[in-house]
Nucleic acid binder design. Structure first.
Length: 347
DNA sequence: ATACATGATTGAAT
DNA sequence: ATTCAATCATGTAT
């Protein structure tokens, strides 16, 4: 009850509490028709309204009671009802049914998909599964710690999100009941239709849901940052093992005149190196551009691989079948540089 | 701590 | 769709 009264006071005093001297100014400003008793009355009333916030609650309570018991009160109420009936039509037109906000739906869907908005435990495992799926299928075993890390962070976000959401929900309900009580209280002194209360509640809910949307927005952002932090492949790059690099380099330098492996060749290389075709493509893309950019730097490497393939070829042809023995790092000495053939070279 | 190496991503060009 | 070129973010050697 106390809080209701306080709300009421702040309501009536809103925007005016800072101008306690206003009535006097108005009196002076209107040209000072001294003998006019009505003006004097209005000034008094205003003065009372202005100072109402300064009064103690008991005093205010007493005044309210006095107002309610005033002999003119029923008449005044009727007048207000009449005025209301005339103006209520214009209010009625102002209500519109709001369609579900597409952006809010988008955020909700995303939070659901990330397992933030869903049920507690199930949501977590679903999110982990999604993360596992998103991290790129093939390579497996050593990222379990990363995933648990990711999961704990996601759980933290979810907890914060839920507590905040609950807080907002609670605040919204509290505020709504406050306002409804206040309106009910006020309906004793002025006419308030249930529709108006409903409208007010709707307005409050809209405000709070817009706040919730901000929460959802920032939660989504946090999840996106977390995602990129943990699931961006660049952040957990691992160099290929030596063997894979050897195989790739071997192919590259033995096809230096046209270092563009076909799809099948890429598949084969990927198989041999235990990497994906996309990774093979990446490797060749990087290798081509970097080789072209600085041929001199790669000269030694080129010589080495040329020598090795030459030795392998020699071995294969003369000694029959001693196919791949990559442990012959012949010195890069006396072999002719594997210059570009006149074939399709790197642009 | 620093510079260089390297795998992945991105946007433009083809 | 593939490749190039630039760039990012990390790995590695000094």
């Amino acid at each position: 009850m106390d809080e209701q009264t306080r709300l009421m006071h702040s309501h009536s005093g809103v925007g005016m509490a800072g101008h306690p001297g206003l009535p006097q100014h108005m009196q002076e400003g209107t040209g000072g028709s001294d003998g006019d008793g009505r003006k004097q009355d209005i000034g008094d009333i205003l003065q009372q309204i202005m100072t109402i916030t300064d009064q103690s609650l008991d005093e205010a309570q007493a005044r309210k009671h006095a107002l309610n018991c005033h002999r003119m009160k029923p008449a005044l109420f009727n007048v207000l009802c009449e005025i209301k009936e005339k103006t209520v039509l214009s209010i009625r037109g102002a209500q519109e049914e709001e369609p579900p906000d597409p952006q809010l739906m988008r955020l909700d869907n995303m939070l659901l998909a990330e397992g933030v908005a869903g049920p507690e435990k199930g949501g977590g495992s679903a999110a982990a599964a999604a993360a596992a799926a998103a991290s790129g299928g093939g390579s497996g075993p050593e990222n379990s710690t990363e995933h648990s890390d990711y999961r704990t962070k996601l759980t933290q976000i979810r907890q914060i999100y839920h507590t905040e959401l609950e807080k907002y929900e609670q605040a919204c309900n509290e505020f709504t009941t406050h306002v409804m009580n206040l309106l009910r209280e006020q309906s004793r002194t002025r006419p308030i239709s249930p529709k108006e209360i409903e409208r007010m509640v709707n307005i409050i809910h809209r405000k709070f849901s817009s706040i919730q949307m901000q929460l959802k927005q920032s939660t989504c952002e946090a999840v996106m940052i977390l995602r990129s932090r943990f699931l961006d492949a660049r952040r957990k790059r691992r160099n290929f093992n030596k063997q894979a690099t050897e195989i790739l380099n071997e192919y590259f330098y033995s096809h230096l005149s046209n270092p563009y492996p076909s799809e099948e060749a890429k598949e084969e290389l990927g198989k041999k190196c235990a990497i994906t075709v996309a990774q093979v493509s990446n490797w060749f893309g990087n290798k081509r551009i970097r080789y072209k950019k600085n041929i001199g730097k790669f000269q030694e490497e080129a010589n080495m691989y040329a020598a090795r393939t030459a030795v392998n070829a020699t071995n294969a042809s003369s000694h029959g079948s001693q196919a791949n023995s990559p442990s012959t790092p012949n010195s890069a000495g006396g072999y002719p540089s594997p210059c570009y053939q006149s074939d399709r070279r790197i642009q």
